[in-house]
Amino acid sequence: MGFKLLSKLLVYLTASIMAIASPLAFSVDSSGEYPTVSEIPVGEVRLYQIADGVWSHIATQSFDGAVYPSNGLIVRDGDELLLIDTAWGAKNTAALLAEIEKQIGLPVTRAVSTHFHDDRVGGVDVLRAAGVATYASPSTRRLAEVEGNEIPTHSLEGLSSSGDAVRFGPVELFYPGAAHSTDNLIVYVPSASVLYGGCAIYELSRTSAGNVADADLAEWPTSIERIQQHYPEAQFVIPGHGLPGGLDLLKHTTNVVKAHTNRSVVE
């Protein structure tokens, strides 16, 4: 069995187990497998329904001669939608809004960016022009300005110390501490036991640490421990890039980060 097929099978099995364990909360999309990078042309966006009122959005972007996937989250909030992270750029984010209108038909009224990198804030200006209120932590807003990236308009308070959590509509926002970046936030959907790890969490097929220019490698494993301790009931975990899975993604990420750190020390 090929690795790609095995990865998709694991996603399907995880979703099936969740649907059985929580039949009222989960209505997993039966329309197909989780979209992969090879299936999404740059400039297009796919939506994948995880649970009743919960979707991931998947886009792709060219970077350094390669094409990478990027995940975000959409959560229903009454007759409105909360968006977590842009679709990595203005063109993708405009396509995301169009796809949401086509498939869901509810307005996106608020959006949260989970850290300051372009795959999370690139497209904020498109959201703002569409009347979406954009939010991020003060740290993310400051770092985005320093980096020359787009800056969300509103500040999220109460997320300055490791372990801080605040309720934001249908989700809980959690600051686990520094990891992929010093400002990275985690998003949890309690009604569906869905954990969105953003770039602080890796997919299972990833074996290298990737972009760690703004990471705190020493603190990252401790931050992941905080996530595990705060959300032990999480059933569906979405990484910032690639295929979702279960809580095993947290341990896998820790292993990859520690291996990278150990290699760096040896070198």
Rank of each mutant, 00 (worst) to 15 (best):
G2C: 08
G2R: 10
F3E: 06
L5R: 11
L5I: 15
L5E: 11
L6Q: 08
S7L: 07
L9A: 14
L10I: 14
L13R: 12
T14W: 03
A15S: 10
A15P: 14
A15D: 06
A15N: 08
S16W: 15
I17D: 05
I17A: 10
M18H: 11
A19N: 14
A19W: 15
I20W: 15
A21T: 14
A21M: 11
L24K: 10
S27V: 14
S27P: 14
V28D: 10
D29E: 10
D29N: 09
S30Q: 11
S30D: 14
S31L: 08
G32D: 08
G32C: 06
E33D: 09
Y34V: 15
P35E: 15
T36G: 08
V37W: 14
V37S: 15
S38L: 10
E39T: 12
P41G: 14
P41C: 04
V42Q: 11
R46C: 06
L47N: 02
Q49C: 06
Q49A: 10
Q49W: 09
A51Y: 08
D52Q: 10
V54M: 04
V54N: 01
S56V: 15
S56R: 15
H57G: 00
Q61P: 04
F63S: 10
G65Y: 06
G65T: 08
V67G: 15
V67P: 15
Y68D: 05
N71P: 00
N71S: 14
G72D: 05
L73H: 03
V75T: 04
D77Y: 07
G78T: 07
G78L: 07
D79K: 11
D79I: 09
E80A: 10
E80I: 07
L81F: 02
L81M: 07
L82F: 07
L82A: 04
L82K: 00
L83D: 02
D85L: 00
D85N: 03
T86V: 01
W88C: 01
G89C: 01
K91S: 15
K91Q: 15
K91D: 15
N92Q: 06
N92A: 06
A95D: 10
A95C: 04
A95H: 14
L96Y: 00
L97T: 05
L97K: 00
E99C: 06
E99K: 13
I100Q: 03
E101G: 12
Q103D: 13
I104D: 01
I104L: 08
I104T: 05
I104V: 08
G105Q: 11
G105M: 09
G105V: 07
R110N: 15
R110Q: 14
A111K: 04
A111P: 04
A111H: 06
F116H: 03
H117V: 00
D119Y: 03
D119N: 05
R120M: 02
G123I: 03
V124C: 02
D125S: 09
V126M: 05
V126L: 07
L127Y: 04
L127P: 04
R128T: 11
R128F: 12
A129R: 10
A129C: 00
A130G: 10
G131N: 11
A133S: 10
T134H: 00
T134S: 08
S137Y: 03
P138Y: 09
P138S: 08
S139P: 11
S139A: 13
S139N: 09
R141D: 03
R142G: 12
R142H: 13
R142V: 13
L143D: 02
L143S: 07
L143R: 11
E145R: 14
E147I: 10
E147W: 15
N149H: 13
N149K: 15
I151Q: 09
I151E: 05
I151R: 07
I151A: 07
P152I: 03
T153S: 12
T153R: 11
H154F: 14
S155E: 13
S155C: 06
E157M: 13
E157W: 13
L159I: 10
S161G: 14
S161I: 12
S162V: 11
S162A: 14
G163F: 06
G163H: 07
D164R: 11
D164I: 08
A165E: 13
F168R: 02
P170M: 08
E172F: 05
L173N: 05
F174V: 02
Y175S: 01
A178E: 08
A179S: 06
H180D: 02
L185M: 11
V187Y: 03
Y188S: 02
Y188H: 06
V189G: 01
V189S: 03
P190Y: 08
P190G: 10
S191K: 11
S191Y: 12
A192M: 09
S193M: 11
S193W: 10
L195V: 06
L195K: 01
Y196P: 02
G197T: 05
G197V: 04
I201Y: 02
Y202F: 14
Y202L: 15
E203Q: 06
S205K: 09
S205C: 03
S205T: 09
R206P: 06
T207A: 13
S208I: 10
G210E: 07
G210Y: 02
N211I: 07
A213P: 12
A213H: 11
A215I: 03
D216I: 09
D216P: 02
L217H: 04
E219M: 09
E219F: 07
W220S: 00
W220Q: 01
T222M: 13
E225H: 09
R226G: 05
I227S: 04
Q229R: 13
Q229G: 13
P232M: 09
P232K: 14
P232D: 07
E233D: 12
A234Y: 04
Q235I: 15
Q235P: 06
V237R: 01
V237C: 03
P239H: 00
G240T: 01
H241G: 00
L243A: 15
P244M: 13
P244N: 04
P244H: 09
P244E: 02
P244G: 07
G246F: 05
L249R: 01
L249A: 01
K251R: 11
K251M: 14
K251I: 08
K251D: 14
H252M: 01
N255F: 10
N255W: 12
N255T: 10
V257H: 04
K258V: 12
K258Y: 08
K258C: 07
A259M: 10
A259E: 11
A259K: 09
H260Q: 09
T261K: 09
N262D: 12
N262K: 13
N262L: 10
R263M: 15
S264I: 14
V266I: 10
E267D: 13
